[in-house]
Design a protein around this nucleic acid. Structure first.
Length: 661
DNA sequence: CCGCGGAGTGTTTTT
DNA sequence: CACTCCGCGG
């Protein structure tokens, strides 16, 4: 079938049907193609597509691979693909009851989880005037981090929050109460999805059913899975051992979220007869870009040793470090360079600007907007995480589950005269109701005599109507209309926000079940505007601006990497430990290996700590062989003098991004 | 008990 | 510089 299109290592991975395989796939080594062709190969060997399970990091990734495979063989569409979280949700819908979960599962997003944790801390009397008890966001991070990183509360405090060690006992109580609270209310946070999925799989009977159903397991981006995901993979495959995991330890960038590199390290121990395949030929980048990548790789403490070699002929141009005076000059230069490249035949869609954190792209965004250059932004706050969208969704969540206390609280506090306390009173009354009708009836108790009563009646009416036998899209319409006056009142720039709400409407139209819509919005975002996906020509597609995290797995002809600056990459938040700095280095590696032909590393001198602060070049460039692989171009003013400063080690501080004079 | 306004805080990455 | 928290007045 695919012989001509694959090299020998790729073919080995593709053609292995039975047994465990670990594929270590360097960037640009054709790993997507391997998965695509392996799916095809399995199907060609008579394996039912429904018995193949492909777990990936994002929905987009699995859809892309399966769509490509389906172009060769339409049966590939029937392969089951998705993220661990969506797969877990599916398992729990079917088997949750057997481990004591309620029928109706409500998925909490990160915001809900924080809200709930905060509520519990308050109830326990911790958050009040008490000294320095951590706030809800930190609490949630501690609790989640402990679970994801397989640590006790004490352990994680010791490692990451030493200053909070005095609160171990209290935080443990919050954790326990939070767990009970979720159980009572039927809530599942992101961690619970994985946790309970693993619980389900621990049941031998269910596990047997599932290993019969999914006979071939494939997992992509295995280096970024956490302990629970690793366990799930193991349990799913433990019986038949037909499991292929693909990953690259050098590209592990989700340690902060609990990615557990032991998963990939221990895979050969878990599956003794495992076949190890390394993909080291790089089909993406020029040798010049790979030289830099290899130097960065050399500085890494990674485990599966590898060297990237270019399959492409031309050596290409050395990556360039660009030096600017300030972010505005830099933005202007990027804008002009991108425009010139377009004139030279490299459309916007083939270029991307990458960065460690969203905020450093703000000056550029302004510049691009001024120049009317169309761009698409990836990373940062998603529109469905914004306050106004969550407001509307809260109403829908109530329709889906009238006991959803967090949503009631959100909906009620919108009303003038209702604050946290009143909302809690009302929602606890509702919580005692048996069904929807009595829940609404419970509102009557408050429907007269209070300042907020007329508003409450209005709310009740809207909800009652939307609850009727209506389509998801009608429900959405009713709620959105009801919400409009609140939107206008709450936000000065409401027209923008109205656009966001309008953007949900077409998504809602695609659903017949409200629960599915809500679950998908929380776990796997439905692709926005599918329209014109392929019909659109590259020339008409926009430029990409993306965080490095969101750029994983993608590639462009030209990449502009913003902020090669101490404190930005590596982030100043990550300077506490060696491990975190190493993760930043891998992030740098991921960024530069996205580029096919041209790579620019951008530095600007003016710091953001005031007019007298100056940036220093990122430590990741500070290595002889790394420096040999790049060229320099200085566009800052009076460059000759300042240039010596960039690598100035004499002040001896290597963990400070800005030096004040 | 609500909600306003002032003060303070802290600023990453995401399923 | 945006958002959150806190304290106070109504």
């Amino acid at each position: 079938m695919s012989d001509k299109l694959l090299n020998s290592s790729q073919r080995e991975a593709v053609e292995t049907i039975k047994g465990p395989v670990l594929v270590i796939a360097g960037p640009g080594s054709g790993k997507t193609r391997v998965i695509e062709y392996r799916v095809l190969n399995l199907i060609e060997h008579g394996i039912k597509p429904e018995s193949i399970l492909l777990l990936t990091f994002t929905r987009r990734a699995s859809a892309e691979m399966l769509n490509r495979a389906a172009e060769h063989d339409p049966r590939a569409c029937k392969v089951e693909g998705g993220t661990f979280h969506s797969f877990a949700y599916k398992l729990l819908k079917q088997y949750g009851a057997q481990i004591g979960l309620p029928k109706n599962l409500i998925i909490m997003d990160e915001d809900d989880a924080q809200e709930a944790v905060g509520k519990i801390a308050t109830r326990l009397g911790f958050s009040g005037g008490d000294k320095k008890f951590p706030q809800k966001g930190t609490l949630r991070n501690i609790i989640s981090g402990a679970l994801n990183k397989n640590l006790s509360i004490e352990g994680i405090l010791e490692k990451e929050y030493e200053h909070l060690s005095q609160f171990v006992g209290d935080i443990e109580r919050v954790k326990k109460n939070y767990a009970e609270y979720k159980k009572e209310n039927g809530y599942l946070d992101y961690d619970d999805l994985l946790f309970y999925a693993r619980e389900v799989l621990k049941d031998e009977q269910i596990r047997n059913i599932l290993s019969q159903k999914y006979e071939y397991i494939m997992v992509d981006e295995y280096q970024d899975t956490n302990k629970m995901q690793g366990d799930i993979t193991y349990l799913l495959a433990s019986k038949h051992k037909n499991v292929m995991v693909v990953g690259d330890d050098a590209q592990s960038i989700y340690g902060f979220r609990g990615a557990y590199h032991e998963n990939i390290m221990n895979f050969p121990d878990q599956f003794k007869e495992c076949k190890l395949v390394k993909l080291e030929s790089n089909y993406r980048s020029t040798q010049a870009i790979l030289d830099l990548s290899n130097s960065v790789l050399d500085n890494m403490e990674n485990k599966f040793k590898k060297v990237l070699t270019a399959a492409r002929e031309s050596t290409g141009e050395k990556p360039t470090i660009m030096y600017f005076g300030d972010a505005e000059d830099e933005a202007e230069w990027i804008k002009e360079t991108i425009q010139e490249a377009v004139l030279d035949g490299m459309p916007f869609a083939h270029q991307a600007v990458l960065f460690r954190s969203s905020y450093i792209s703000i000056p550029l965004q302004a510049e691009l907007a001024r120049a009317r250059i169309p761009f698409k932004f990836f990373g940062g706050l998603k529109f469905y995480e914004t306050a106004h969208v969550k407001d509307v969704l809260a109403h829908l969540k109530i329709l889906a589950n009238f006991k959803d206390e967090l949503s009631w609280s959100r909906v009620l506090t919108l009303l003038p005269g209702i604050g946290g306390k009143t909302a809690e009173n009302i929602s606890s009354t509702i919580h005692r109701a048996e069904d929807w009708d009595s829940a609404l009836a419970a509102l009557d108790e408050y429907s007269a005599g209070y300042k907020y009563s007329p508003y409450l009646l209005d709310l009740k009416e809207t909800l009652a109507e939307a609850f009727q036998d209506k389509t998801v899209s009608e429900k959405f319409g009713l709620v959105a209309d009801y919400y409009l006056p609140f939107l206008k009142d709450k936000f000065d720039e409401w027209p923008n926000r109205l656009n966001d709400l309008e953007a949900i409407r077409p998504i809602a139209d695609n659903y017949t079940d409200l629960n599915d819509l809500l679950a998908d919005l929380a776990i796997e975002i439905p692709e926005e505007n599918q329209k014109g996906k392929d019909s659109e020509k590259d020339e008409e597609k926009p430029l990409t601006l993306s965080t490095i995290h969101s750029a994983k797995g993608l590639e462009w002809d030209a990449v502009y990497l913003l902020g090669i600056i101490e404190g930005i990459l590596p982030s100043k938040m990550a300077l506490k430990s060696k491990d975190e700095i190493e993760e930043e280095r891998r992030l740098f590696y991921v960024a530069i290996t996205r580029a096919r032909n041209k790579l620019f590393l951008l530095f600007h001198l003016a710091g953001n700590m005031g007019p007298m602060s100056f940036n220093r070049l990122s430590r990741f460039l500070d290595d002889p062989s790394v420096l040999l692989s790049v060229q320099h171009k200085d566009l800052s003013m009076g460059n000759a003098k300042k240039k010596t400063n960039y690598n100035d080690e004499t002040d001896g501080i290597d963990d400070d991004e800005s030096v004040e004079y």
